[in-house]
Structure formats: C-alpha cells, structure tokens
Simulated scan of single mutants.
Amino acid sequence: MHFFEDHSNELIISGILLVVIFIIRIISTKLVRRFAKTSDRIEHRTNLVIKYIHLLINILACIGLIIIWGVRAKDIVLAVSSVATVVGVAMVAQWSILSNITSGIILFFNFPFKIGDTIKIHDKDFPVVGEIEDISAFYIILKDNEGEQVIYPNNLLFQKGISILQDKHEEREFTD
C-alpha cells in the first residue's frame, strides 16, 4: 500500500497521459482516414500510415512516462542517443529500406499519380512506361505495354523525372 501512497501523483499523471494518448490516436486515425477518403487514397496504404503515426505516438508516450516517473532528462538523452547510434550503425546498410518507407509516406500524402494512371519514368539507362497497378510502402508495381510487371522502388521516383501520360482509352470501371 505504500507504493500507491508514495506515487499517487505519478499514477494520476500517468493515467491522464494514457487517456490523452488514446484520444490522440483516435483523432489522428480519423484525420488520416478523412484525408484518404477526400483524396481517394488506397485503404491498405492508409492503414500503413496510421501504423507509422501510432508508432510515433507510442514512442512519445513512453518518453512521457519515463519523465513522469522521475528519470532525468539527461539520462533520457544519453539512452536515446546510445540507441540511435547503435540503430544508425546497424541501419547503414539498410538506408534504402528507410528511404523507401519515407518515400512511401510522402507519396501517400502528396503524389501526382494514382493507381490506374499510365506514367513514364525518365531513366536514361532503363526508361519505363507502364500503368500503375499498386503503390506500396516500398515500391510501385507497373504493368508495361508487353504485359510485364515492373517493380520500381519509391525512393527512385523522387530521383527521376516522371510524366503522367494521358489515357488513350475510354473511362474504365474498376471492380474487385
């Protein structure tokens, strides 16, 4: 019983923080879904972005709980910088994965093309023209004129020029 008496302030503040975090998660989810609905984004990409946002919120909640329970800010900075250093060294070889994830998030919120558009990627070594079949967190899938699938990493879309070609066909109705 001494624990509850000695740490009543921390318990109350922790409870309030957890309720606030829960509310922020609900609000952020609704905002992302509303954005996706008004801009015709794909549902599985919406869920991916929501997962990333929830991860960030959870990390901030853990930092908040650590501060509430009395860990000094200096110790937090030391621990975070140590973890960031280890992760940074481990991820040097994996920079393209992080680059593709970041590019996928940017493409979700602000990209000029959508599934079904025909695009031309201006690459001097390997130019690609194809219809976008899918846009994922890491890559887009194009179907070229010969019917082959071309998988193109998201981070390269920001490094190459892209033309959105006018559809020569009539409006098509897509069904699942």
Rank of each mutant, 00 (worst) to 15 (best):
I68V: 12
R172S: 14
K160Y: 14
K124P: 15
N100Q: 07
K120C: 04
E170Q: 05
K114G: 08
R25F: 11
S96Q: 11
N58Q: 04
N58H: 10
A93E: 14
I132N: 03
P153G: 04
N155C: 09
D117H: 12
G104D: 05
L55G: 08
V49G: 00
A84E: 06
D117E: 08
K124V: 00
D75Y: 11
F158G: 11
N9I: 00
S81N: 12
I135H: 01
S8R: 01
P153S: 02
E133H: 09
R172H: 15
S28L: 05
T46H: 08
Y52V: 00
E173H: 12
K143G: 05
D134M: 06
I57W: 14
I68T: 11
L48W: 10
I115R: 03
N145E: 14
F4A: 00
L165R: 03
H44R: 06
Q149Y: 14
Y52D: 01
N47A: 07
D6M: 00
S39Y: 13
H7F: 13
G116F: 09
A93I: 08
G64C: 06
F158H: 11
V83G: 08
D123W: 02
I140D: 03
A61N: 11
D144W: 01
E133T: 07
L157M: 06
V89K: 03
K120F: 09
I12T: 13
V87L: 14
S39G: 01
I13W: 15
N58F: 10
V89R: 02
E5M: 00
D117W: 02
L156N: 06
I50W: 10
L56N: 11
I105H: 02
V129L: 01
I135M: 06
H7S: 08
T118L: 03
I97M: 09
G70F: 03
L55I: 04
V49P: 01
H54K: 04
L78V: 11
I27M: 12
T118I: 03
N145L: 01
V129Q: 09
I24Q: 07
A36M: 04
K168Q: 12
V92K: 12
Q94T: 04
R41K: 12
N100M: 05
Q149K: 10
E146C: 00
L31V: 05
L78I: 10
V129A: 03
I27T: 11
S14E: 13
A73L: 13
F138E: 10
N155F: 08
A93T: 09
L31F: 11
I67R: 11
L18T: 14
G88T: 01
N9F: 05
A61T: 12
L11T: 08
S99P: 13
P127C: 00
V150Q: 05
P112W: 04
